[in-house]
Design a protein around this nucleic acid. Structure first.
Lengths: 230, 230
DNA sequence: ATATTGAATTATGAATTCATAATTCGGTCA
DNA sequence: TGACCGAATTATGAATTCATAATTCAATAT
């Protein structure tokens, strides 16, 4: 893994890899929304590549579950259903629990300090009700903890699943009281990390995720009911 | 998911999908061994397809971690290092633990009966010291439990990771006392399942996996040391 | 007005072609 | 003999081409 990474950092990544990332971003940031057709030709023109690397990228994205390829009918951004959320969240919970335990065994003092800094920043953005920047700081905290597990397989699995649900864009819908609660949970998470209390951190992260699930579910239900009304 | 599956079952799977499966099998059964080059051209001839679908398949296999693509140098079957095993097993453990808990909530009596049948068969093959068929029955048991979690995401993640380590072919090296112990563990697993004791089953499966890890590690260490001697 | 048919158009799946990078191998020189 | 160079060969990355399946849309029938 480290070998292939070092090679990748020297050599220019191939076209298809770049395309995977860029299309992933289009999906996550909502330019390509769930249920929409992935316009193969347009994307080729937009990125200035031929269909070959584009189609290779689409195959990888399909294998990651971000899009669905229907034979002879093209690619579609996969919808996030309530059923899928109910599947993904427990799995993410199991992974986060493990990450928390491992992180407490392996995290450095510098990394804990980095979490502390990100935490303070996150709280500031909460006070300002700045959802965008709150999300970024929040995300940074979880990334540091995950990386501190020193388990690239775990990190990769978690990232892959996170991407699938991140599209739900739950933050836009997060109610203020739930948001407040999330900040409090993060205070506990930081404390457990500082104490290197592995099992406790695992439980906290899992719980934190379950609450997040509540938010996402609510957002999705609202979205679905409003869609029905149209 | 059910939609795309029903479509896939009607339409002929595309070439690249078929190739992904067949090359996967070549890797798992050892025809393509770890560290070996994946002979793109030869495989094209062998399967009677052009390079385009073949290369699409290789991209997917790389994304699944079965092979490594080195820019301008081709594809190689990824080696299983001890470091990777140490990463993968805890993740699989977390997933199996979850699977056990969910299975106890959702498994049908018929499915428990199927596990019982496979268990009896497995014990018979143990008595005959028939490793091949023991492995098959063993595998069937774990598949039923996993499927009983009713969580296709969990199943997919578990399968993907299992494939990565199944290549280690640990069974060939399993010592008789460890084998005996594995059978005993399976007796407990069956009992927990019959009692629908979710938490307990989760712990048992995780423990069972850790023991398996010991076997795989030993096999790998022996293999590496013998390789060094060459 | 709506549904249905079929030709024209477009999109997709896969083979082929082309440019370039890596490897091989024969020859040269130390 | 062995290290080094460079032309020939081969493999790889990506664009193009070609065959076929899906879709669109105008014309017709109900």
């Amino acid at each position: 893994m480290s070998l292939s990474q070092s090679i990748a950092s020297i050599a220019r990544p191939s076209l298809y890899e770049e395309l995977v990332e860029r299309i992933e971003n289009l999906i996550i940031e909502g330019t390509l929304s769930p249920g929409a057709k992935v316009p193969e030709k347009e994307l080729c023109v937009q990125f200035g590549v031929s269909r070959t690397p584009m189609r290779e990228a689409l195959k990888v994205l399909a294998s990651d579950g971000l899009i669905a390829l229907e034979p002879n009918r093209g690619a579609w951004v996969r919808e996030i259903t309530l059923a899928e959320l109910q599947e993904v969240f427990p799995v993410l919970g199991a992974l986060e629990g493990l990450a928390g335990e491992l992180a407490c065994q392996n995290i450095t003092d510098d990394e804990i300090e980095a979490v502390r800094v990100a935490h303070v920043e996150m709280v500031k953005h909460f006070d300002d009700r700045n959802r965008q920047d709150y999300f970024k700081a929040n995300h940074r905290i979880h990334e540091i903890i995950l990386d501190a597990s020193r388990n690239t397989t775990l990190v990769a699995q978690h990232r892959s699943l996170s991407k699938r649900i991140r599209r739900a864009r739950y933050l836009a819908n997060m109610k203020i009281d739930r948001w407040q609660k999330a900040v409090e949970e993060h205070r506990q998470i930081l404390t457990a990390l500082e104490n290197r209390a592995g099992v406790e951190l695992g439980i906290l992260l899992k719980q934190h995720l379950e609450n997040k699930f509540g938010t996402v579910r609510q957002g999705l239900v609202e979205q679905e009911s409003s869609a029905t009304l149209l």
